[in-house]
């Protein structure tokens, strides 16, 4: 990584104007832990880590998470309807969690990134701020490389995640060889159960498939079905047939497809169990 220059701005506005002026020649650094993978060269770094964009607040039915909140803080935060601690707990190591940020995890997305999958399942809202603030649903935001949505000078400022309510359940799994490894298969699901039926379902996966995406066929197969294991099984079997699974770290695509289905069953079962109040 070759950097030409760095700027440590005083506040959000000066960070944005510096980035705007630099255009292609500048980029934001939050934790800086993914620069190694990005191969950025000959650019000017603008440090956005102390612009007051960190912290978690509960407001109404949602948590507002500052974009530069560290994964370590996400892991430590505890509340009834809060689930992102489970995701952070399985991201890399403490040294990385201490400094890397939620924003950094979801602006330039790799298949193995941990948070996009969870945010898709949770139906998060993402706020990009330039001159004015613009909100994106997770579906729009992750429908392609998010960086496409950013003009020079624009930053992700916060992420809004709904508080999980009674009757809702969350399931998450990241398959790794060892704890600190990159994901081989990630899946997350949120299920809402009403009168014994699946009233709402969002499920997303990544790592084993090209980029984080919702599995709409699985969702469609589950919507309105009886809230039981048989429905899940059938939905996973039918809803994943068209997916192009990719094996990583020496595993075959055939095994990846099998693993993907097992992991999906696991997250759906966990979400269902929680939704049913167990």
């Amino acid at each position: 990584m070759k950097l030409n220059e760095f700027i440590i701005p005083e506040d959000l506005k000066s960070a944005q104007s510096a980035l705007e002026k630099l255009g292609e020649k500048g980029f934001a650094v939050a934790g800086g832990t993914s620069l190694h993978f990005l191969g950025i060269v000959e650019k000017t770094a603008v440090d956005i880590s102390h612009l007051g964009l960190s912290g978690i607040q509960k407001q109404g039915g949602a948590y507002l998470i500052g974009a530069t909140t560290s994964l370590g803080d996400l892991m430590k935060f505890k509340d009834q309807g809060w689930v992102l601690d489970q995701v952070a707990l399985h991201t890399s190591t403490q040294q990385i969690r201490n400094i890397s940020t939620l924003g950094g995890n979801i602006v330039r997305v790799f298949p193995w990134n941990d948070f996009p999958v969870a945010l898709l399942a949770l139906d998060a809202t993402l706020y990009i701020e330039g001159v004015a603030e613009k909100a994106y649903s997770s579906d729009d935001y992750f429908n392609g490389q998010p960086i496409r949505l950013f003009q020079p000078g624009q930053l992700l400022t916060r992420v809004e995640v709904p508080v999980l309510k009674p009757g809702q359940g969350f399931g998450y799994h990241k398959e790794v060889r060892l704890h600190a490894g990159f994901s081989l298969m990630t899946a997350a699901a949120v299920i809402t159960v009403k009168s014994g039926r699946i009233d709402g379902i969002r499920v997303a996966a990544s790592a084993g498939i090209a980029l984080p995406a919702r599995l709409t066929l699985v969702e469609a197969a589950l919507g309105g079905q009886a809230a039981d294991a048989a429905s899940l099984q059938q939905a996973v079997a039918n809803g994943t047939a068209a997916l192009a699974w990719k094996g990583k770290e020496g595993m075959s695509d055939e095994y990846a497809a099998h693993l993907g289905r097992v992991v999906l069953m696991d997250v759906l079962s966990a979400a269902l169990l929680q939704a049913q109040g167990e």
Binding site: F6, I8, V29, G32, D47, Q94, N98, I99
Partner: peptide, 12 residues
């Protein structure tokens, strides 16, 4: 908080 100094830029 602990950090990895091998990937942390000095300016950080």
């Amino acid at each position: 908080k602990t950090v990895y100094s091998c990937i942390l830029y000095a300016f950080q």
